[in-house]
Design a protein around this nucleic acid. Structure first.
Ligand SMILES: [Zn+2]
Ligand SMILES: [Zn+2]
Ligand SMILES: [Zn+2]
Ligand SMILES: [Zn+2]
Lengths: 136, 136
DNA sequence: GTATGTGACGTTATCTCATTACAAGATTGC
DNA sequence: GCAATCTTGTAATGAGATAACGTCACATAC
C-alpha cells in the first residue's frame, strides 16, 4: 500500500474517534471542543486529543487553521501532494473551503527563491464571507 | 493630517511603550514577553499589552503573526495601502521578512472572486530558513 | 521464553495565550 | 460644571498547548 495514504484501518482508536468528530462537523473544531465531544468515549485530557491531531495532521487527513487555533478534516482529495493550500474561512457560518492553485503556489515559491528563503511550510488563510452567507 | 498615518505623537503612553519594545526587538514578541519587558514601566497585567497591541495593529504599525501567536513591528513602509502581506519567518533565527507582491495579491483576489467570497483579510505566512541561517 | 524496543495511551500538573468584568482617571465638547 | 468618551488599572477567568511521569500492547531479537 502507498505509505502516504492512510485509511481508516490504519488509524488507532483515538485517532479514529478524533477523525470522526472532525468529519461529522461542518466546520473547524478546537481541540477542547473535540475533547468535550469525546468525553463519552473515554476522553479525559487534552493530550489525548492533541496526540491524535498531531498524527492526523502528519497523515494529511487534517489541517490546522492557524488563525483560528482549530482543526478541520481535509475535504480536498487532491491536496495530498500539494503543500501550498489556501483556506477560505467564512466568518459568518464558519465553513472552510480548501483550494490549491498552481499559479499561487508558483508565485510563492518564486518569491521565496528570490529571497533565498528555504521554504518549508506555507500558511494561507483568507477570511471573509462566503457566497451563501452574502445572499442571506 | 492623514487619518491613516499614525506617528509617535498620536500614540498613548502605553501604546508608545509597547511600540518601543517591538521596534527594539529583532524579531516578533509575544504579548507576555512584552509584558515582562515593560514591568519596570508600570505594566502589571496582560490586558495593558493587549489593549495597546489592538490599537497598534489597527493603526497598521504592528502585525500579528497567526502561526506564532506573536506580534512584530511593521518594517515595510509600503505595506500601508496593501492588505495582502506575506511574511517569511525564519525558524532558526526568528527574523521576519515582510513582503508585498502584486501578482500574489491579484491571484488571491481572483480566486476569492471566482468563489464569490467576500475577502476581508488575508494571512500568508511562510516558514523556513532564511538566507543568512542557511550558510551558517 | 525472555529481553528489549517501540508506539500508543492515561493522568496530573503546568505553561502560554487571551478575554471578561468592573472601577477609576483623564479628555473632550457643550 | 457636566456628560460623553476614551484610556487605564486590577483581578479573575477562560482557552489553547505542552511537560513529565508511568503503563500497556505488540513486535523483534536472542
Ligand atoms: Zn486538504
Ligand atoms: Zn458562510
Ligand atoms: Zn507592514
Ligand atoms: Zn534565519
Amino acid at each position: 500500500m502507498n505509505e502516504h495514504v492512510h485509511e481508516t484501518a490504519d488509524l488507532t482508536k483515538n485517532q479514529t474517534l478524533v477523525m470522526g468528530a472532525l468529519t461529522r462537523s461542518k466546520g473547524p473544531l478546537s481541540a477542547y471542543t473535540i475533547l468535550d465531544q469525546l468525553r463519552d468515549n473515554g476522553f479525559r485530557a487534552p493530550l489525548q486529543v492533541y496526540r491524535a491531531l498531531d498524527k492526523l495532521v502528519e497523515f494529511g487527513l487534517v489541517h490546522r487553521l492557524e488563525s483560528l487555533n482549530a482543526f478541520v478534516a481535509c475535504r480536498h482529495p487532491g491536496c495530498d501532494g500539494d503543500d501550498t493550500i489556501a483556506f477560505m474561512i467564512c466568518e459568518r457560518c464558519g465553513q472552510v473551503n480548501e483550494i490549491t492553485d498552481t499559479a499561487l503556489a508558483m508565485r510563492l515559491k518564486q518569491l521565496a527563491g528570490e529571497a533565498s528563503f528555504a521554504l518549508k511550510k506555507t500558511t494561507i488563510e483568507l477570511r471573509g464571507i462566503c457566497r451563501t452567507c452574502q445572499v442571506a
